[in-house]
Design a protein around this nucleic acid. Sequence first.
DNA 1: CGCACCGTTGATTAAACTCAACCTATGTGG
DNA 2: CCACATAGGTTGAGTTTAATCAACGGTGCG
Lengths: 234, 234
Amino acid sequence: MNKNFEEPSCNVCNNEFNTFFKKLTPAQIDFLNNNKTCSVVKKGKILYEEGNRISGIFCVNKGILKIYKTGVEGKEQIIKFAKQGDVIGYRSVINGEPACTSVKILEDAVLCHISTPELYHLLRENSEFGIELLQIACKELGEANNYITDIAQKSVRERLAEILLQLKDEFGVNDEGLVNIALTREELANIIGTATESVIRLLSEFKTEGIIELQGRKIKLLDLNKLKKISNVY
Amino acid sequence: MNKNFEEPSCNVCNNEFNTFFKKLTPAQIDFLNNNKTCSVVKKGKILYEEGNRISGIFCVNKGILKIYKTGVEGKEQIIKFAKQGDVIGYRSVINGEPACTSVKILEDAVLCHISTPELYHLLRENSEFGIELLQIACKELGEANNYITDIAQKSVRERLAEILLQLKDEFGVNDEGLVNIALTREELANIIGTATESVIRLLSEFKTEGIIELQGRKIKLLDLNKLKKISNVY
DNA sequence: CGCACCGTTGATTAAACTCAACCTATGTGG
DNA sequence: CCACATAGGTTGAGTTTAATCAACGGTGCG
């Protein structure tokens, strides 16, 4: 845990991102600020693994995190990503269970840790805060349900198109139009639940069809309408 | 809405099932009792559909409900079932969105309706109640994540075996050893995300292998260990 | 009686996985 | 500095799984 950096203030996160603690009183925000512990975590590090007991939740101030499960024969299934303003680990903390996912840092991150007792203190003291967290959980639940339907019913081609659009929406594009997240082909495969080779073949099909452009791991979406059509999203 | 029946009391549900309102004060339980509206809903009825605005949540006092989404080309994807003690509809109410699932009654049900303002009143007044609902949401979220991994990685055979075990755990068996839920072959297919014919073929395989016994729509699991082995659950 | 729904089986097709080989870039140790 | 190892990316061939299409039997109901 590197401490040679300026710790982000909860007020700043609160103002700049759409955080889940926006209903806290100033005094409660101070409480958070005084009790949280922040750290810089380097790319490649594993924050925690499936089965670990975790001592609290993490707020993401900076960076990109990959949240995944390990399925049959060790195959990784990516559940979601977390970035600036997101909170992770609350599921395990709230249910008092070991983590059911692992978390790996994809881009150097700044994370703030709120311990379980501190979280519960705030949840008990401020019911609006609990409602806020409930909203996050319900939002994720809706997304998970959509995802189940997609994986169960759509072809790999449809799912890949859909994921490319989602990644663009979630991470945006840089000034060259490249989507702001660099994933290996294998990681893309582990999101949509397919084999690496299938992703490679489909990406090069999309490229041939002029729908996308590839620059190593970075992808530019050239024809959003075609992608939407392929993905069957309305 | 048939009113010729005895309305269940929240106290009774609270004592007999593991409900999410066990942290309410007696006064708050009274508030619920006085404000809820109960109804008998017959098998086959659709309680609400994807896209509907719903005016509150439902507690299940009796019956079995099927919660599903409509995916590509109208194909149904079953997300989960609800029974005695379960609560449904909270995701939409909390997020202030239209329902993202449809609900159909599979077995005659007794349902109690709590309106959105009443729910929020209790959530604001009693933070422990909010935590309780948060726990339910987090539990479902964990199940959804497991399900995503299963559908993405396991074969149809593995998934069918797993679902049979889950249905037994969730609904139990009657005195003849038959699992207490009657689903059509198509519905089984719509849980695991496959074609009806595939389910039929696999069920008859399992039967030939002496793993299960079929009596119309009712299923008896004869060899749990083999099923666990097939399903790859540890 | 005839229609609708469900269940079943067989034959064929298509989607996607697996396996294998090979290439490139990058990093490591002798 | 070279030899080698490692990880990621790509392509082709062959195989497997599961979907699709089609036909048909049973059951219940208006």
